[in-house]
């Protein structure tokens, strides 16, 4: 079973890298970019097909390591 975890910065957390990317997009001539926030994607392969267990485990993985919940949100998608 495969899963995709997306980690994004919480609203209001300053993102200097996103700001720099936004500036670079402007430099390239892309108009109308209202903002860019940088995040992370984790593709996780699980050695079983138990969807319920996967959701429990992936949530624990996010809480314990993959996301810093002080500044980041996470979303889990079973593929």
């Amino acid at each position: 079973m495969k899963a995709r975890i997306t980690v994004t910065l919480k609203k209001g957390v300053l993102d200097p890298q996103g700001k720099a990317i936004e500036g670079a997009l402007g430099t390239l001539g892309f108009e109308g970019v209202g903002g860019v926030r940088q995040g992370k994607v984790f593709d996780v392969e699980l050695a079983h097909d138990d969807k319920e267990k996967a959701e429990t485990d992936l949530t624990a993985m996010c809480e314990q390591l993959l996301a810093n919940t002080v500044i980041e949100n996470y979303a889990i998608e079973i593929l």
């Binding site: 957390v13 300053l14 993102d15 200097p16 890298q17 002080v70």
Partner: peptide
Amino acid sequence: LLEMGLLPGALMRNANL
């Protein structure tokens, strides 16, 4: 120490990158 939750807050990339 911040990642351990022993202190509050977080340290982000320097503002000037």
